[in-house]
Simulated scan of single mutants.
Amino acid sequence: MNAALRLGLIDGDGIGPEVVRAARQVVDEALSAADAPRVEWVPLLMGHRAIEKYGDPLPERTLTALENVDAWILGPHDNASYPAEHRHAVAPGGAIRKRFGLYANIRPARAFAGVRAAARRIDLVIVRENSEGFYADRNMFAGSGEFRPTEDVAMMVGVVTRQACERIAHEAFRLAASRRKRLTIVHKANVLPMTMGLFRDVCYDIAHAYPGVEVTDEHVDATAAHLVRAAEDYDVLVTENLFGDILSDLAGELSGSLGLAASLNCSATHAMAQAVHGAAPTIAGHNRANPAALQLSSAMLLRWLGTRDSSDALLHAAERVERAVAATLAAGIATSDLGGQASTSEFTEQVCARVLRR
């Protein structure tokens, strides 16, 4: 028997329980089909259910448990609907990223056969620096990088460090070297010459270690325009936290829907699958949510584990999930956000059936 993987499973809020359950089903099928290690799932609480039970949307017992699993799947959170005393705290997802040093956020966007995409040939990956930049919940050792010195003045601190730039650049270059060997550094050094200039320059410094990768750089506003006009021109983009968040949402919509937008948050030692989309509370409980994004995010998690453990079986399981989701969409089976009629559970059943095919 292969040793079991211990994977955390955090439902979160809104549609979270539905899409997390769908991701788990597909992962279980893929691991079985690939003769990969079985999974010991570790259910953990976050969000409204955690508030009800522990009085905290992200209890310390959840964070402690995450220290003792191989990786985890995170459902969406809806902190805007939390009780007032919890609403303005750091969002659970951001707090988890900071606690475990998940400095890289990998966000692919590709067009799928059977899906009407605004950019029909899009196939790119945005590598988002995830630990600092302009995001106030992640860029300070303690407290927030956003503050109000007076009632009428609000300020924020943006942080860019050489160490963080170097490690995200390496992540992006390694990925580009495994794909089409093109990398675009996205910045705003023309108006932020110190912070964004440092980001750009450090990425170019790291480029010397990857001579096979073609490197260019662009201002973020130009990149947004070019994505709309010719998204197929891009391979891998590396950028700052806020810029990466915005551009990846744009790329997700260009590929057809945020319901397809997968994401992996990782470091060298920890990884978390988390779809780009939110909790969609208006459709929660109606079996209408698109589970594809979290299923594809879970495939990325399996690939990360397979690379970490040098496990061909885990890599094969990841490929099975990706192929099965793509084949289901190509067959015209889709949820309502993509113009289809399938429910969450029906889509998942179809994906599971295709996972088992050779």
Rank of each mutant, 00 (worst) to 15 (best):
M1R: 14
D11P: 09
D11I: 14
G14L: 06
G14M: 07
A22W: 08
A23F: 01
A30N: 11
S32R: 15
A33Q: 06
W41G: 11
V42E: 13
P43K: 15
L44I: 05
M46R: 09
E52M: 04
P57F: 03
L58G: 04
P59Q: 09
E60F: 02
E60H: 09
R61G: 00
N68H: 15
W72E: 01
L74M: 11
P76K: 06
H77Q: 14
N79F: 06
Y82W: 14
E85D: 13
E85P: 07
A95G: 01
F100N: 02
A117T: 04
A117D: 04
A118F: 14
A119P: 11
D123L: 10
E132N: 09
F134L: 15
F134K: 13
Y135W: 13
Y135S: 13
A136I: 05
G143E: 12
Q163E: 14
R167E: 00
I168Q: 03
E171S: 14
M196E: 13
C203Y: 00
Y210C: 03
P211Y: 13
V215W: 10
A224S: 15
V228D: 06
A231F: 10
Y234E: 02
L242Y: 11
G244R: 15
L247W: 08
D249T: 14
L260S: 06
C266Y: 00
V276N: 01
A279Y: 03
A279E: 04
R288M: 14
W304V: 11
L305M: 11
T307Q: 10
D309M: 03
L314E: 15
R323S: 06
R323K: 04
L329H: 02
I333P: 01
G340H: 03
E346I: 00
T348Q: 08
T348M: 07
Q350L: 02
V351F: 04
C352D: 04
A353S: 11
L356M: 06
